[in-house]
Structure formats: C-alpha cells, structure tokens
Write a protein that binds this DNA or RNA. Structure first.
Lengths: 164, 164
DNA sequence: GCCAATTACTTGAAACCTAAAGAAATCTGG
DNA sequence: CCAGATTTCTTTAGGTTTCAAGTAATTGGC
C-alpha cells in the first residue's frame, strides 16, 4: 500500500504494466514469425514478403481489385501500393488496367503466370505456418482466435475514439 | 469424405487453414496496434516508432548496450541499428563511445536529455496501450499472455529446426 | 452547366529495413 | 608468436514504408 506524506492511504496509481507486457509479447511473436516467413520466402522462392502479401490479396479476388482496395486490405499507404504494384507489373506477375467506368481507378489482377507462381508459393507457405504454430492444440488455436478478435475490436474502438 | 477414383476412402489432406487464419489475425492485430502507436507518437511527440523502441531498450539499461545487443533485442539487422543510432546520436538523444576493452564494440546510452524525453513519452505510451487493450478483462490478458508464450516457443522451435 | 469538395492515384523526400560483402579487432589452436 | 576463424560494426544495393503534397477524374449542390 502506498501512503502519502501524511500517512493516509492514497489511490494506487493505475497499473498498466500488464497490458504493456502483453503488447510487447504480441509484437515479439509477430516479428518472430514474420521474420521466419520472410526468410523462407526469400530462400525458397526469392520473393519478398510484401510481394507475396499483395499477390495473396489478389488471388482471393480473380476479377481484380483497385489500388485503394489493396491499400485498405493490406493496411499500408497508397503510395506504397503504387510502387509495389509497379514492380510486380514490371515482373509480369500483375496485370493493370484503367477502369472504364472511372478513369481514376486502376484495376489490378494476377496474370496467369503470376497466379501459377503464387499458388505454388501459397501451398508451401501454408505448411510453414502450420509448422510454426505446430505446438498449439486445436483448443489453443480457437482460444487465440477468440481473444485476438476481441483485441482487434478493442484496438479499433480505441483508434476510432482518438480520431473523433 | 473424399473418395478416390476407385471409390475407396482416402486420407483427408491435412487441413491447415485454421493456423493460417490465426496467423493472419495475429498479423492484423499487431499491424493495427502498431499503426495506432506510430500515429500517436508522431502526432504527440513527432518521433518515429523505431526511435522510440530503441530508446526504450536503452532506458532499461542505464550503463548502456552494444549495437549487437540492441540488434538482438529489437530483432532487426545490424546495419539497421547503425543507421538508427547514427540519427539518434545526431539529434542528441544518444551517447556513443568505443569500448576500451574491445575497440570493435560501440557502447551506446541515452543522454540526460534523451532519457528525460523518453520518460515523458513512455508515460503516455503506457496509457495508450492500456486504452487499446481496454476491453480485455484481466483474465483475457493472462490467457493471451499464456497462449502467446506458447506460440513464441513453438515458432522458435520451428525456426531453429529449419536452420539446423 | 458550373464549381467546390471528394476520391484515386502518383510523386518526392526521408527514414527504415534486409541481405550480403567488407573492414577492423579479437580470439584460438597450434 | 601467428595464421585462420570469429566477432563487431559499417557499407552498399535494392526494396519497403510513411507522410505530405500534387494531379486528375468524378460527384454533388446550386
């Protein structure tokens, strides 16, 4: 118990160390796994993680997406996407065309070659992830999913409150 | 049930989608929170997250650390630390000196001004984190800590197995 | 129709980051 | 002692990333 100079009980300062430790642990886990995936992608396919991530987004939507869509989904800036797409178009993985309906909009899709290469990578990638999380039981996985969903909601709420 | 061409029961292919979804959710959570912290640091103190992280490491060890120590703790490359430190020395936050015992080694410490500025930032930062995780109960926090510890161990095991 | 606001994307500057190669100092087994 | 291996840090090249400012196209109110 903390006592002030007059020896009266005072309010304990709010103790937030637990949340901070949780955040650091969350960050450590993610950094660790991300680094591992990055290494394997480079080693096995000579591809960078951002490129893989972008292709993964596009693989889910065969009809293509706009740059803004990609930017929101990947949670990175617009300018970043522009450069990333530029290099993937250059290397033949992506097809980019201006929308007929709105000439500001660029629609990008995987090319046939890009899709084939991505699928090859994705198959192995999924095995890596399974191996990396291999010591978790199905129950652990479910419980983590639940708690992370709650965390995400809490963080979104906090972020929204700040910008309002 | 999947049946092969001769209508015999065959082994179901291993199903790893759950782990992949877990990984994506983990990544989303971290990216979301990291972005939020980054925004607040910039907005409130005009400082970048990597700089804050480096100062946080140094604050824990008043006698200073070597660049390799920092590199390991932050899980970033050596070359990255060199540049980061360079800029923080330049701005007067860090003190850098060559070790007497081993002239390859650079020991860096927070300057008095650097420490004062960091402490100011750290106080607010802790409140932000508490707010971001605000909807989690103490039990949620404990449970997440436990599961993430398990995840970290699993990932480290997997990473070690790969490089062996 | 017209103009202001908005939206979609690009550009530019600075910082961050990795991987790989290199330089300097130290360590180690003859 | 000393040559080779190792460790610590820097450098270089190529990407990635953010933020802010800018351009072009569309939308909406009047």
């Amino acid at each position: 118990m903390i006592l002030d100079s007059e020896t009266k009980a005072v309010e304990l300062p709010e103790h937030h160390g637990d949340e901070l430790r949780l955040w650091l642990r969350l960050l450590t886990c993610t950094t660790l796994i991300e680094g591992e995936v990055r290494s394997r992608l480079r080693e096995r396919f000579d591809v960078t993680l951002p490129r893989f991530d972008l292709m993964a987004q596009l693989d889910k939507v065969p009809e293509g997406m706009t740059l803004s869509d990609v930017s929101k989904r990947m949670m990175v800036s617009n300018g970043n996407v522009t450069g990333l797409v530029e290099r993937l178009v250059e290397s033949g993985h992506l097809d980019r065309r201006t929308s007929d309906a709105d000439r500001r909009v660029q629609v990008i899709r995987l090319t046939k070659a890009g899709r084939a290469e991505f699928r090859k990578m994705a198959t192995e990638h999924e095995l890596w992830i399974a191996d990396i999380f291999g010591d978790l039981t199905p129950k652990d996985v479910r419980e983590l999913m639940r708690l992370l969903a709650k965390t995400k909601a809490s963080a979104q709420k906090s972020a929204k409150a700040r910008t309002t």
